[in-house]
Design a protein around this nucleic acid. Structure first.
Length: 349
DNA sequence: AACCCGTGGAT
DNA sequence: TATCCAAGGGT
């Protein structure tokens, strides 16, 4: 076994995390759900979602049988909603093509929607004790430091080197302890900022530490200027209910319910009539909301509107909900903020 | 290959 | 406040 793997495993026994909710079971479904939720998402953000999701969808069959709306409702606020759509889709694939049994073959696991090489490796190690390596942000950071790898690890060439290196470091035994240790090591000791090098068992092996380049590695992702967009969201109200519109599965907030959008130049009342044939009049405005994504900043101007004419029949992509029901529906995080603002300070005419 | 896809915590 | 980025994957 490489000295690297040996030290990671030893460190894991005394300093790793052993009591996370998804570590109580080797059930591939439980591991799968946790790994999807944890993609680009920190443990603290996942814990609550994981418990609620597993209570409502305890098996692959129960998830496959659920509606997309309900699955999205349990993901609402967690972000990267394609994960939920793919998870739902993959559960149906498993029912149809794998007789409801989670596949054990590595290529079959990776063929499922939303499961790439790293996630497939995590599942195959934790559930089936196979010999595969993960390569997430934690591992890239640890490798970049210990082995002094220059360049942003997201670059295809660097990433390919990292995969090869990670594979070469795999021990023959104790794969679950090693993989879990690798993640815990990156998440709690070899952190992005303020790594605890003085407590690190790899101190003498670490090129970054030896060369005092810990704060320089890994090389940061090259950034581009963040564009800004401005939209108005219509809050059309009638008899204590508000109009929501379902967003298409592709694009931002895909598959979620949201407030109807208006381009900044349009006049909300006119837009409400042109889009839905609803006669409305504007109410007092609510505070503007800024929301920052990975790739752009969004300025949301909420425009409350009171329905003055008749309510048109609902179509498949619209629905009227009470404010409380809307808040618990499958909506994006900033829309939930807007609805809570609306509830706490109802606008006047 | 480059871009898209959310949200919240840390600094 | 602005920036980075976290148990990545799809297109």
């Amino acid at each position: 076994m490489s000295a690297f793997a040996e030290k990671i495993i030893t460190w894991q026994r005394t300093h790793g995390r052993h009591d996370l909710p998804w570590q109580q079971s080797k059930d591939p479904y439980a591991v799968w759900v946790s790994e999807i939720m944890l993609q680009q998402t920190q443990v603290s953000a996942v814990i609550g979602y994981y418990g609620r999701f597993m209570e409502r969808f305890p098996t692959i069959a129960s998830l496959a049988a659920a509606s997309q709306d309900e699955v999205m409702q349990y993901w609402s606020g967690l972000g990267y909603y394609s994960r939920a759509r793919n998870l739902h889709h993959a559960a149906q694939t498993i029912m149809r093509e794998f007789s409801g049994q989670f596949p054990q073959d590595f290529q079959s696991i990776q063929s499922l929607k939303g499961i790439g090489r790293s996630t497939a490796a995590a599942i195959s190690v934790f559930s089936f004790n196979q010999r595969q390596t993960i390569l997430d942000g934690n591992v890239k950071r640890v490798l970049a430091r210990v082995f002094g790898i220059e360049g942003w690890p997201g670059l295809p060439l660097i990433e390919k080197q990292c995969w090869s290196l990670a594979e070469s470091l795999l021990p023959q035994l104790n794969l679950p302890a090693y993989i879990q240790g690798l993640m815990d090591f990156g998440a709690t000791l070899c952190t992005r900022s303020k790594p605890r090098c003085l407590s690190c068992p790899l101190q003498n092996d670490c090129q970054a530490y030896q060369q005092q380049r810990v704060s320089k590695l890994p090389s940061p992702k090259p950034r581009k200027a963040m564009p800004e967009k401005r939209i108005t969201m219509m809050m059309i109200m009638d008899a204590g209910e508000i109009l929501l519109e379902k967003r298409p599965n592709h694009g931002i907030w895909g598959g979620l319910w949201s407030l109807p959008e208006v381009q900044q130049e349009e006049i909300p009342c006119q837009a409400a009539y042109e889009k839905y044939r609803l006669a409305t009049e504007p109410l007092e405005t609510l505070p503007v909301l800024w929301h920052t994504f990975t790739h752009f900043k969004l300025e949301i101007t909420p425009q409350p509107l009171q329905l003055t004419g008749v309510r048109q029949p609902e179509i498949a992509t619209t629905c009227w909900l009470s404010i409380d029901d809307a808040i618990t529906a499958a909506i994006p995080a900033p829309v939930r903020t807007l609805l809570k603002n609306l509830k706490s300070t109802p606008p006047l005419i």
